[in-house]
Design a protein around this nucleic acid. Structure first.
Lengths: 196, 196
DNA sequence: GTTTGCTGCTAACGTTAGTTAGTGTATTTT
DNA sequence: AAAATACACTAACTAACGTTAGCAGCAAAC
């Protein structure tokens, strides 16, 4: 077989990680084999190890790439000075875009993180917990200001984040509405369910 | 080791299936091994095969037990003569109860069905698709009658079903509100997001 | 143009997986 | 009590897994 193709911006490792995300999404982390990944990359299985340390490294590259992106975005939203509803809308739109544009890695990060090994596992769980708390804090602020119905903020976070992960089904469906229409519908229903 | 304990209502096979659901939920279907399951059941791995045909039989027992339950419920709701909003509320409450009371098998059916083998896989996917269409039809009827906002019904279904699967996070969380409070919060947000 | 390092290959390793065969013992049936 | 069935055991098989060792050739640096 030939060498792994790269463009100037992407290392060979980055190519492998990207293809791994697609494979892990389709088969699941445990069911995906390195020989299968090698096939897709166009190389023998052993050759992958010239670029990566292990299968599990692939998983944590994917998971933390996603987690860091969301972490940074949350920071920027917290810094803004707009209504709580507006902040929530921004977060939701960011998640929806992420789910549409970086589907593979977001999906893997969402569903396969439990196969991370310590210390990555604990680390990831912490980041996740923290993220949700920050999200809940924004909702609680909105409730205080009477912008938002008096509901349990933690439950609201859980509903929103999981609702968005349902975009998976949109991806799989044959007859689907446009990405923009999907986004507007989701915002309507989810934000509509919060407003006082 | 001794024999598998049963009470009069449950066959030994039922005991194995139930423990398999818990194990598959925790480790994932592919990562769970028959030797591990045997340990939990209190028996050697080979002995399991006196009661089941294969590992994958366990998975489809679990998945179809759940799918059939929801299928039947949908039938009974369709037969009722109440408002669309009320029907949706009933369906949501049924899903929420299912997620709280039969968590293991519902969770496995939700997340691990892709490891089913044909013909079970296609069969399951069909049942799933049909179920969602029936759900969407109820929502569309509600839109027609102006009970419900003018939204894409398919997207609404996707949001609701996935939002409910977020109860997984509720199960995992340390400080959690009561099941009843969770249910009311979810209904408030989800049904609130639909109402016109 | 030679050297150095990167990247691919083949072969093989140790482990774990699901599953089967065959045997003995407990339980149920007659 | 005898016969039949149900059930658990030990041992082992084949297949697949992630990964390593060792070597060959191509690419870039000097």
């Amino acid at each position: 077989m030939g060498r792994i193709k790269t463009d100037t911006n992407n290392s060979r490792k980055a190519v492998i990680v990207a293809k791994a995300a697609t494979l892990f999404k389709e088969k699941g982390y445990k069911a995906a084999s390195m020989r299968e990944l090698a096939d897709i990359v166009g190389v023998e299985a052993a050759s992958l190890y010239n670029h990566i340390k292990s299968k599990s490294e692939l998983l944590h590259e994917i998971c933390f790439s996603v987690a860091n992106r969301y972490g940074h975005f949350m920071e920027s939203v917290e810094a803004e000075s707009c209504s709580s509803i507006k902040k929530i809308e921004k977060i939701l739109r960011f998640h929806i875009h992420g789910m549409i544009e970086h589907f593979d890695e977001v999906y893997v990060s969402d569903r396969e993180w439990k196969y991370l090994e310590d210390p990555y596992l604990s680390n990831f769980q912490n980041q996740r917990r923290t993220y949700r708390k920050r999200f809940a804090a924004i909702i609680e602020a909105g409730i205080q200001k009477k912008e938002i119905k008096s509901i349990d903020a933690t439950t609201a976070v859980l509903i929103m984040l999981h609702a968005i992960s349902g975009i998976e089904s949109w991806h799989r469906s044959k007859q689907r509405i446009s990405g923009d229409a999907l986004e507007e519908n989701m915002i309507t229903i989810l934000v509509g369910g919060l407003k006082n």
